[in-house]
């Protein structure tokens, strides 16, 4: 009976497993092996030698170091601001009663819009001569900034775009989290003498912790994987003189640009390890902190 049930379940799962197997599992294994190809003839698909050469190459490659640096700067720039901003907006949205559906939709639009379309609009916004950004800054007497064409402003421009792009999703998740906090906790806190700020610190934040934890993990993972925004914002480049080059962009360049499959795979696995370690740390912290 048990065997029969298992067989039946497997039969139902088979189509999905087939697709996942071909497009996810196989490439994962293949790229893992590829990262150890030291001497490879890709015309005939013959591997002459396996080794750590690709990883050693990455260890010494200045460009890869720059990609790592840029990626960390990007993650540090996007994640905290995005979380604080979206929590703040979610709190505001949660407390308005009129047109709340309308405003929620407005904030969610960036998330459902195509990255390419969004980036084209932002290229116009960031345009150094005609862009609305510089126009606004000009109102405050700030000189025009070369957002997309200078090495020091390419990364901030990318970060601003990414924060804006991710807001909608985070806000929706935060709103869902806020709605699970019962009114009675706020009422109890008011009776206990907690003012608005104390209620936020002692009721909202702790009870929102599981939501915040989820958003942090998702945001960090997504930020480490950033690619489309760069590709579209800098017109197929990684920013002026690689100033917005991230690890995924590096992988892309190595793979499609230089056909160096081994190095590309190795870089992808280095990124995987970094994300994996970060996620482990977060799970460890959350186990200690979120305890109810």
């Amino acid at each position: 009976m048990k065997l029969k049930d298992t067989a039946k379940a497997f039969l139902y799962l088979f189509p999905a497993l087939l697709i996942i197997g071909v497009f996810v599992i196989y490439p994962m294994i293949k790229s893992f092996l590829m990262s150890f190809y030291a001497d490879y003839d890709f015309f005939n698909d013959v591997v002459y030698r396996y080794g750590l050469d690709n990883f050693i190459y990455l260890w010494n490659d200045e460009v890869f170091h720059q990609a790592l640096r840029n990626t960390f700067i990007f993650v540090l720039g996007v994640v905290p601001i995005s979380i604080i901003l979206s929590l703040w907006i979610a709190l505001m949205l949660n407390s308005i009663t009129v047109l709340s559906k309308f405003f929620r939709t407005v904030y969610f639009i960036p998330f459902v819009t195509s990255v390419v379309a969004v980036s084209i609009v932002w290229r116009w916004i960031f345009h150094s001569n005609y862009g609305i950004m510089n126009y606004f800054l000009g109102l405050f007497g700030i000189d025009p900034i070369q957002w997309l064409t200078s090495t020091e402003w390419a990364m901030p421009a990318l970060i601003i775009l990414s924060i804006w792009k991710g807001l909608g999703y985070n806000i929706i998740i935060f709103l869902a989290g806020l709605q699970t906090i019962g009114d009675s906790y706020y009422n109890a806190a008011r009776i206990d003498g907690a003012n608005r700020w104390s209620r936020f610190i002692h009721v909202t934040l702790p009870q929102l912790a599981p939501t915040t934890f989820f958003i942090t993990i998702i945001s960090i993972i997504n930020s480490f994987k950033v690619f489309d925004e760069i590709y579209a914002l800098f017109d197929g480049q990684a920013g002026p003189s690689n100033s917005a080059l991230t690890v995924v962009y590096y992988v892309f360049n190595k793979f499609y640009g230089e056909w160096d499959f081994g190095v590309a795979s190795a870089a992808a696995y280095v990124l995987f390890l970094i994300i994996f370690i970060f996620t482990l740390i977060q799970f460890y912290i959350s186990k200690k902190k979120i305890t109810y």
Binding site: G182, S184, Y185, I191, N195, P206, Y292
Partner: peptide, 17 residues
Amino acid sequence: EKRGIGMVFQNYALYPH
């Protein structure tokens, strides 16, 4: 906050954390 009363709620509303 300023009435200085104590209150017990139907579901107790103890802070779970």
